[in-house]
Design a binder for these strands. Structure first.
Lengths: 244, 244
DNA sequence: GCCGGAAACTCATCAATACAAGTGCGCGCT
DNA sequence: AGCGCGCACTTGTATTGATGAGTTTCCGGC
């Protein structure tokens, strides 16, 4: 079995919602109807619906048909490190345009964040990320030299940097993400195709290996109408009985 | 059936892990064994395991027994829900000014997010949060009626809503945060003391109880020069969210 | 026309079974 | 002894059937 049935169903339903075939607020077909439509049993259908519910695409409750909630593409947390992967998971087509890659001495702020000597070189790159061929995010990444070197020879318009580095044995282990908002400057405006001054979501990220050594510093700017960032967390300690 | 079987199983397994009966790195019993132990079929057992996997407690894969992942000694749960708590931990002085509290029918978007009937009432409040007496964040919160009622009689300028609700036995279990950026509107401008159009960090949050029922919807807007939001994650642990 | 309740519909839960696919261990062959 | 193949075990996926519980619809009595 190439792709599991429940995954195919989830993908199909995601497409229907995203394409507008089922509008926001509308109800999905009932489970029984979906079973007939896809010639499947309720197991895979319910698995698919659970996946969509997990992604926040649909809501509903016992006795009520699932309804389409607001649909802005967002990311499940497992893929927090890779734009490519989270785009694929949510059924979008990721793309990228490398603007620049350079081996140079980073600015003092970045050098400090990476705990580098002010004289040390680092690999810096500026990349425009696309979702379904629309500009979605602009990333300025800085890698410490030994980690970033393989990037100089790679085809960075082809694949995921995260995947490439993982293949090289680089151990991206922990990341700290800081979010705020900034106004689009001239560069942002040109590449993201928004007026100057437009509010952008900014994510600054410092990634370390398992020994705590900083490997990567990145500043990403998102067009909020195209992409958002979603985080889910759960209480670890839970009382065993529910009063609800 | 008071509590579903799969929930009881998940609870039991959680306790075994947390109590150390199954140590970190050890394997759980196989699904078949768990079925025999609990006299259940594979359905509920797999549902329970999926829940634990979702919480990051266990890992594993096809053909491999589930293993207990390293426990997360991360910050207590309330630190991601309570602005007050987080501010105190970072040495700032939190403050708040309740602008408005009302029992009303929420708008269609909010009602949909909370899975409420369009006619149902909810408790809505608008609060300005301060850090060291400077405006830092504006929060618009909506609680489903039965959860929010105690707030109507409380002194909301005094303490933390999270602490108050916890005291009432409300079981805030999981939250989903979505981040983007918006321009300050007239209200934001007046209360946060920034010019209209200033980029603000927006956090939309849906909090659920352990059964998955939505309890709270909140939209928070941060002045990026005063407060930011930070998320930390590692490969093997769940994310933790903090503000300030 | 209004209201109450029965009935139909829907999702939630659980059981039992079957087969596919991945893992790991041990046995047997070299 | 070392290596590789195969078998037992385990999880992933899918089907079918049954029951419980919540929601919606609609019809009949008033």
């Amino acid at each position: 079995m190439a792709t599991p049935l429940h995954r195919a169903l989830a993908s199909e339903l995601r497409d229907r919602i995203r394409s507008g075939a089922i509008g926001v607020g509308e109800q999905l077909p009932s489970e029984a109807q979906l079973c007939r439509d896809f010639s499947a049993s309720r197991g895979p259908v319910r698995q698919a619906l659970a996946a969509l519910r997990d992604e926040g695409l649909i809501g509903g409750g016992q006795g009520k048909r699932p309804v389409v909630l607001e649909s802005v593409p967002s990311q499940p947390f497992e893929s927090f490190l890779s734009f490519t992967r989270r785009a694929e998971l949510t059924g979008h087509v990721p793309g990228q345009q490398l603007q620049e890659i350079a081996l140079r001495r980073p600015g003092p702020t970045v050098a400090a964040a990476l705990q580098l000597d002010p004289q040390a070189y680092a690999v810096q790159l500026l990349r425009l990320r696309l979702l379904d061929d629309r500009p979605a995010m602009l990333e300025r990444m800085t890698y410490v030299e030994d980690v970033g070197r393989p990037l100089l020879d790679a085809d960075l318009n082809a694949g995921s940097i995260y995947a490439l580095l993982s293949g090289e044995g680089v151990d991206l282990y922990a990341a700290r993400h800081t979010f705020d908002a900034v106004a689009a400057d001239a560069t942002d405006s040109a590449l993201l195709e928004v007026p100057e001054g437009t509010p952008l979501l900014r994510e600054r990220r410092l990634t370390r290996d398992s020994s705590g050594r900083p490997l990567e510093w990145s500043e990403d700017r998102y067009r909020p109408d195209v992409a958002t960032v979603t985080v889910t967390n759960t209480r670890s300690t839970r009382p065993s009985v529910s009063r609800v």
